[in-house]
């Protein structure tokens, strides 16, 4: 009977990835992540164009999802940057002043660049 030590789909690979995921699963997860990036990236780009509240709300959701998904596929730099964007958008949406503060916009720009690089790697 399988137990917690017998992880058929999650055996350590000994590869550069320290995730412990099997190569097959990692390939599948990366393909799914590429799909997510494809879908969410255009919406994140809209943050550079004086976004309204609806765009900010959607971008918050996109950044939130990307942060978690990137962590799963081992894209730690994307995950950290997306988490910063998420936190910045959260403050922005809760704050009294409309618009996107420059530091958050800069993080968002960095995130889109990282995602584009990831897609084309």
């Amino acid at each position: 009977m399988p137990d917690d030590q017998d992880l058929a789909g999650l055996r350590p690979t000994g590869s550069a990835q320290s995730s412990g995921l099997s190569p097959e699963l990692l390939v599948a997860l990366r393909a799914a992540f590429a799909g997510e990036v494809d879908r969410r990236l255009p919406r994140l780009r809209r943050l550079q164009q004086q976004p309204g509240p609806q765009v900010l709300e959607q971008a918050l959701r996109d950044a939130h999802s990307l942060a978690s998904s990137a962590a799963v596929v081992g894209a730690a730099d994307v995950a950290r940057c997306a988490a910063r964007v998420e936190a910045g958008l959260e403050r922005c949406l809760r704050g009294p002043a409309p618009g996107l503060p420059a530091p958050v916009a800069a993080d968002a720009e960095q995130l889109t660049a990282l995602l584009e690089r990831w897609l084309h790697a």
């Binding site: 992880l7 350590p12 412990g20 978690s68 990137a70 962590a71 799963v72 730690a76 995950a79 988490a83």
Partner: peptide, 14 residues
């Protein structure tokens, strides 16, 4: 959720 700064592996998480 798993995070980029987790000390354990995803296998540990599982």
């Amino acid at each position: 959720k798993p995070g980029p700064d987790d000390t354990g592996t995803l296998e540990d998480y599982a």
